[in-house]
Design a protein around this nucleic acid. Structure first.
Lengths: 340, 340
DNA sequence: CCTGGCACTCGCGTGGACCGAGTGCCAGCA
DNA sequence: TGCTGGCACTCGGTCCACGCGAGTGCCAGG
């Protein structure tokens, strides 16, 4: 029906207009700025229907309409075309991320880049340990009964822990232990490492057993700990511009939720690679995020995401542009990590 | 003179009152709330003098007085008694920081703790590489011509770099190289390592020379790079509360300056251990910080600070309390790093 | 089914009046 | 000489009344 079709065009126009102007949009302005081919009066009728269906709402009687969360959801799912990045933007991504010197650097640059491209708060997760593989395991004696274990993954993460060993150790024993552990674990996905530990302890020389057990235990603890899923956050300054307009009261709770990395990590947990996830307003469970939207995607070359990245901003955001930016950066980060 | 003395008491009262109420303080309120022993009229005379001397100012004619930067400076230097932390606060510090599992964790906890104690933005610098000593240097072959160098310091920092080596290497050569480098560098302050490199290259076996040179060069680059002075920031949400009151316009530039770690690092560069540095308003060179104060101190057990930490907030802050908190946390962090 | 017209609503910005906190100054007092 | 109470004055903040204009819903006509 030409009928329904036009109504959707109206909805799309409302979203676009509101996103760019931040003013409730009225029928007249809509007719003037968008080529809908009908008069304001007709648009008003359509708007009334859209409001009834819950896609838009008016802040007060004599104001224009504003999209609801449901309206944005529909827009994102059905109405927004994929907006390709400009050549300049692609160049910028490349320029910005090349020359990164280690993982920390890659993620730091990514978060700044993403914040700059989207003008939102950017969030980048470190590669999940459990999906990374062991590149090397190093043991440095601190004293006779304490070892420093350093775990290096193929994604470039380095984790360290002090291991209290049950018996005094000599340099040679440590060397043996190091070789043994590296032979066993190098190349193994950390998520699957726990399976190997039992056998390894059983099959190792008696004098090494307690050591193998202690170090392995620490290693498993380290990566099981979900608090070890680190996060880099950037561009919080972007919150401070339209804040009063976009967030009711203050955005303090939002900043708090972001610093409380757990909240974001939970959102990230669900992301898959290559499929961008958009979570809008009330769809977010955490209260501080009910006025915000979260655009995220997993990065990593394989079929399973190594980690996630995304942006957080007001529900009134440029979804098409942000989705494109997030996807592009994720892809590039994936490449960078794969080649190192 | 009893005269001057009272005037200073008035200044102190003004600062204290303004800090806690955030209202320009008038003569009547001052006489009522503080036991100055004189009438409002007298206080008014003193205030007039203080204003003339530049310690206080009035936002507009019929308002109370507000301390100027100069007033705060005087207050900090001469009027504020050291405010010891409560037993509960000491307990909190201990509880909060104990159980930290590695450097990242120690600093992460410190920054959260500091933000919570002071209700300001907290900033913690990673231990400067150049003042750290080498604990271990690890080399992991990535391919025949690329090595991953992992540098572990006695302060718990771990830095990694990929080194392109000029000749193909075998596992045994790498082992030799590792032993050689560790023997040479372990225990050496990184700042002094550059002196050793020349001799080391000359004295090593011919086939190792290019390798030693390549790895050493990368190592020196790594630590010379001042961008490697990392920073952890926390409690930015604290900016969002009195923001409108404390910062002209928006505090966006302040957030930006904080994210631009360089600015803060420059401030940190000057801190010494055990002496708290306070930088007030216009004293800060960076424009975005001219409405802010920065309280910082170095941490580290020796005579030279390993790094710095501090808080940033409006000039209208509880200097005595913040100084105490910053100092206490720095001391505790120093202990933690020394014992690991 | 669209359109132009019309009456109505209501938020917002403006401008004037009022209020009260705070000041500076002055004369009197110890 | 220095403190105090009194007094006139200043001026920013708040409140309120008012008019404007954007925007709406509805209706009759094409």
């Amino acid at each position: 029906m030409a009928h329904d079709d036009r109504r959707l065009r109206v909805l799309r126009a409302i979203v676009q207009d509101y996103v760019s102007t931040n003013d409730p949009v009225g029928s007249k302005a809509l007719a003037a700025r968008y080529d809908l081919g009908v008069s304001p009066a007709t648009i008003r009728n359509d708007m009334a229907v859209l409001e009834e269906e819950g896609y838009i709402t008016q802040p007060h009687t004599s104001a224009g309409r504003v999209p609801t969360d449901k309206g944005y959801r529909f827009f994102v799912d059905r109405l927004s075309a994929i907006k390709p990045l400009s050549a300049a933007e692609r160049k910028a991504i490349e320029k910005f991320l090349d020359g990164a010197v280690d993982l920390h650097d890659v993620l730091g640059r990514s978060v700044r880049l993403l914040a700059q491209l989207t003008r939102q708060v950017a969030v980048v997760q470190y590669p999940t340990l459990s999906r990374s593989a062991v590149r090397h395991l190093e043991l440095v004696p601190l004293s006779t009964s304490r070892l420093l274990m350093v775990l290096i993954t193929d994604t470039g993460r380095v984790e360290q822990r002090v291991v209290e060993v049950p018996v005094d150790t000599e340099a040679e024993t440590v060397a043996e232990l190091r070789t043994l552990l590296n032979t066993a674990f190098t190349g193994a996905k950390l998520g699957e490492a726990s399976d190997k530990v039992g056998d390894l302890v059983d099959n190792s020389a008696p004098h090494l057993r307690p050591l193998v057990a202690a170090v392995s235990a620490t290693m498993l603890e380290t990566l099981v700990e979900p608090s070890e899923d680190r996060l880099v956050i950037g561009g919080t300054a972007n919150l401070a511009q339209g804040s009063a307009l976009d967030f009711p009261g203050t955005f303090r709770p939002l900043l708090e939720a972001l610093e409380e990395q757990v909240v974001v990590l939970r959102l990230m947990a669900e992301v898959g690679p290559s499929t961008v996830t958009v979570s809008i307003g009330e769809e977010n469970e955490h209260e501080a995020l009910t006025a915000a939207s979260f655009v995220s995607v997993g990065y990593g070359s394989g079929d399973q995401a190594l980690g996630g990245l995304g942006v957080v901003g007001p529900t009134r955001m440029d979804y098409a542009g942000n989705i494109a930016a997030v996807r592009a950066v994720a892809r590039y980060v994936g490449h960078l990590l794969a080649e190192s």
